[in-house]
Design a protein around this nucleic acid. Structure first.
Lengths: 190, 190
DNA sequence: ACGGAACGGAACGGTTGCGTCTCGTCAGGG
DNA sequence: CCCTGACGAGACGCAACCGTTCCGTTCCGT
């Protein structure tokens, strides 16, 4: 027994796409439901038929898309895994939308508890877990000492690249990821 | 020949303090002039007597405060300099205001050209230069090879700590900075 | 073919914000 | 001691936005 007729998937998809485009263009703080609806070619009612508020729409759309972005390279060597992880991260951050949206979400999460919890559980924890497995495999292979501080290593995996791409904002050299890999592996072993 | 009577410094200071508190609490996107004025115990006219618009107020206040936050430790050894740099950065980011404001400004800068240029010239460039000197001194002392990639090293100096404090959002262990220093120095030498 | 529900569009009331303006007050330099 | 101008407070016009409600239309299951 369905309660009502089904919402149209294509409309939901259009809203989702428009939401992220609008989020990238104007930021979480200034995001307006009218703008999302207009960009999606949709009536506002279609949005409020799906979510009870702007906040819930933002949180649910954000975490629903984020879960698909989990990568756990397993190339057989630490260096290969690190290099692949960086390539994946670089590719993900090459989407202009992602590069504009992610820092915005991290900033907003610091004052929006609901958003913060959604991001932590749907993005940080899974990613951190799979990255941790990556380091654990290196330890099992004997590439890293058994007492390696995994948590600390993970900060090196994402930190420098994220810092370069979002804060420094200058295009890295072509061989940047290779050089970065060398230094990250060296840091892991320290 | 003064054009008019002087603006009161204590009022300007109150506006500045209120601006940053409001910025931390609500974010750049939602920041309102009314809220800043009310928090400062000031009429809106006092603000518009000083800056022609909200945007200019934000840019000028931000860059004026930022210039004072430049540190270039020179302890005589690479490890000492790195450790001191991290301690300074950690202290700066321990201000709850800073931890809420900085990610917000970085996110906003990505879509606000005027703010971006102000941050790049008043924060990134001076900090990057003094940090570069730090690495250059290590090269002169022979602690690092002459062909060290300074730019890449700087990404390691700030990236992991910033990532940990802003994105991962879990309190680091007491000896975190020491362990971090070891790995950063190892990365520098790679 | 029918009917119900979702659809795009638009208007609504209530709220908020920007930037301007006007009050009456207060301070400080000549 | 007086006069100029900054001051706090707040009203103003205008625009934007949220969330709701109403249209007339279109789609889809039965």
């Amino acid at each position: 027994m369905t309660v009502g007729k089904a919402l149209h998937d294509d409309v939901t998809d259009a809203i989702s796409a428009a939401f992220f485009e609008e989020l990238a263009a104007t930021g979480y703080g200034r995001l307006s439901v009218d703008a999302v609806a207009k960009r999606a070619g949709v009536g506002k009612a279609a949005i409020y038929r799906r979510w009870p508020s702007k906040q819930r729409m933002a949180v649910e759309l954000t975490s629903s898309v984020a879960v698909s972005a989990i990568d756990a390279p397993d190339t057989g060597s630490l260096r290969g895994d690190v290099r692949q992880f960086l390539a994946n991260a670089r590719a993900a951050l090459s989407h202009p939308l992602a590069l504009a949206i992610i820092p915005d979400l991290l900033a907003e999460a610091r004052r929006n508890v609901e958003l913060a919890e959604a991001l932590l559980s749907s993005v940080r924890d899974p990613r951190r877990a799979s990255s941790g497995d990556m380091v654990a495999r290196a330890i099992e292979r004997g590439e890293l000492p058994a007492d390696t501080d995994v948590e600390l290593c993970l900060d090196f995996l994402a930190g420098p690249l994220y810092w370069r791409l979002t804060a420094i904002n200058s295009e890295p050299a072509p061989d940047y990821l290779d050089r970065l890999t060398d230094k990250i592996v060296a840091a892991f072993r320290a």
